[in-house]
Design a protein around this nucleic acid. Structure first.
Lengths: 349, 349
DNA sequence: CTGAAAGCGCTTACAG
DNA sequence: CTGAAAGCGCTTACAG
């Protein structure tokens, strides 16, 4: 690893070729593990590569070969553990494929998302995985990334999506099925007055989860009261603040399907402040199965979205697309799994 | 944005130059906002760039200019919210500087870290931010990245670090000061028998926090019992399991400084299982100020490391280094801030 | 203010 | 099996 080369200049194939008395082409063939090159020549070149501390310049190779060795990953909110896990899963698979992840974060702003996509696309990623900011628009995204680079949309739909974007793959969670199962579970535990708590009607995931909730309630013919659908920001703090809205009118619900775990944990907090013991006096379910769902008191029945596995899956889908650009678009809706932890929703007394 | 170009070929400066009847050099000058070019010519070229949907090829430009427009970020555990926040902070600043983040995750494995560094370095990042895997070795890292690319070490020390790595910048948290303040706070609340709970002696952050704890105890002359220093994995689950170790011998502590918030939350769980009400029967402090510290019951007094701010700071330090490669290395130890939430450590009755 | 030429570090046919 | 030549898409002196 020691280098005789002055720090000012990078070692290139030319240096190696000169030192070995071969052509640059030969060095290139060695680098690319070509079987064409003589065993002894290869050994000599490899020794010299090591000796001079040669570092392959993949950008130059990509330019010449017109290939890419990167995948762009644009996340709406990287600080959110769900998306952080997702990103980790993507990066696992991208790394295994010998490629590198170009990271971008939009902070839930479609404007930032535009800027980030514009910047990343100039680096020539082979494909893009986009977890859209809320309100992100399909036309804007197309304008930013062009039609040449395969794109996979994760988790949310883009607004205004038209048939001309049908070539984009997508991977989403089956929000509706999940919320349906959670609601059915609470019903099976004996609840009739069940609320849907948290989230925002603007978001497609919230709309889908609500639809699943309503579907399950309708399936058994239970009525729903308007004040049982409470909107709040998808944060603990706001959920805690909004808890009382559930009890403002009669009849009050005895259970709630929550938009996600953060909201459910916040609701627990809000219930406790009203003197209600979550789990005992009021049953609830979450969505996501974040780490603390299992460790909260009471532990939380929730829907596992397996974000790391989804990240791996998204990356695999995109790599598949790079191999076969003309295959029909795949729109996968991954099922979520109900994780029953009795303490947050025991049988109704 | 509509493109007349067949999908098979990318639009290049050559296409734009031909369409406008100017040379490629002129197009290049327009792209780089040079004041040299005539106003009308510029307008014509810009219109044509838009018309053909030109996308700048930054890799080609970087090759020619021998510059870089990326920063590599290698994280030991991206799924950990602390590091996810850190990564988000890094990416904010990198993006603001018009650069792009190359992401890598080592999953706490020095071997994976080596592989990831080796892969990222081939993409020619301008600099590297490394949050080392536990046990990562300075010589190995140097072998993987070479001496040419500036590196900033975050959060942990590399093992076997020698004077020859003194050119690496570093940003760490003042673990010792933080633990000292937490311990002093518990002492001020009236505790004398204070434990240090959780973490692993292999990790430098754990050793530093323990040192701060001991220092504070010694400063007031309080004795420490060996069974008050309990090791466990830095996870809730293991912390809950290890809680009883605190009570195996007499005298039992009345409070604990915990290695981090996850461990503190786990300890709360373990205390509750033993019939002790955390906060009332046993005081404790955390470290990190993760989101649920404020919302746990009882809410947790802890030390705020502000990971997002640290990410921004790390990126700024590295960008500064790129501007001034020969400046002396900076080794910054960022203070952490005690966030007092009385409910986890009220005055001792 | 604009153009012709050379070159960043690599790879790919094509000869030999 | 190896080498000479051309070229990926851009930028930079250097002329004019």
């Amino acid at each position: 690893m020691e280098s005789n080369t002055p720090l000012g200049r990078k070692v290139t194939v030319r240096d190696i070729a000169a030192a070995c008395g071969v052509s640059r082409a030969t060095v290139s063939l060695v680098l690319r593990d070509s079987p064409l090159v003589n065993k002894d020549t290869r050994a000599r070149v490899e020794e010299e590569l090591r000796r001079q501390g040669y570092v392959y310049n993949r950008a130059a190779a990509n330019l010449r070969r017109r290939t890419s060795s990167s995948i762009a990953l644009v996340i709406n909110e990287l600080a959110n553990p769900f998306f952080a896990e997702f990103a980790a899963g993507v990066d696992d698979v991208v790394g295994e494929a010998g490629m590198v992840t170009l990271l971008g974060s939009s902070s839930e702003s479609p404007q930032r998302e535009q800027a980030v996509l514009g910047s990343l696309i100039e680096h020539g990623p082979g494909g893009i995985i986009l977890s859209p900011a809320e309100g992100s628009d399909a036309r804007q995204v197309l304008a930013a990334v062009g039609a040449r680079t395969p794109l996979l949309v994760f988790n949310r739909e883009l607004s205004g999506e038209q048939p001309e974007y049908a070539h984009w793959d997508s991977l989403a969670l089956d929000n509706q099925q999940g919320a349906r199962e959670a609601t059915a579970h609470l019903i099976a535990q004996g609840h009739r007055r069940i609320a849907f708590f948290g989230g925002h009607g603007d978001s497609s995931s919230c709309r889908q989860r609500r639809a699943g909730y309503r579907e399950a309630m309708k399936a058994v013919g239970f009525p729903m009261a308007p004040h049982w659908e409470v909107e709040c920001l998808p944060t603990r703090l706001d959920a805690a603040r909004c808890a009382e809205a559930l009890f403002e009118a009669d009849p009050a619900p005895t259970a709630a399907v929550c938009y996600n775990d953060a909201v459910a944990l916040g609701l627990m907090h809000g219930l406790a402040e009203r003197g209600l013991a979550p789990g005992q006096d009021f049953a609830l379910t979450g969505f996501d199965d974040i780490a603390e769902a299992a460790l909260a008191t009471p532990s939380l029945t929730t829907l596992a979205a397996a974000p790391r596995a989804r990240g791996r899956q998204a990356a695999q889908m995109l790599l598949q697309r790079l191999r076969d650009p003309d295959a029909e678009a795949r729109r996968i809706v991954a099922p979520v799994k109900l994780v029953i932890r009795a303490s947050s929703c025991p049988p109704l007394a």
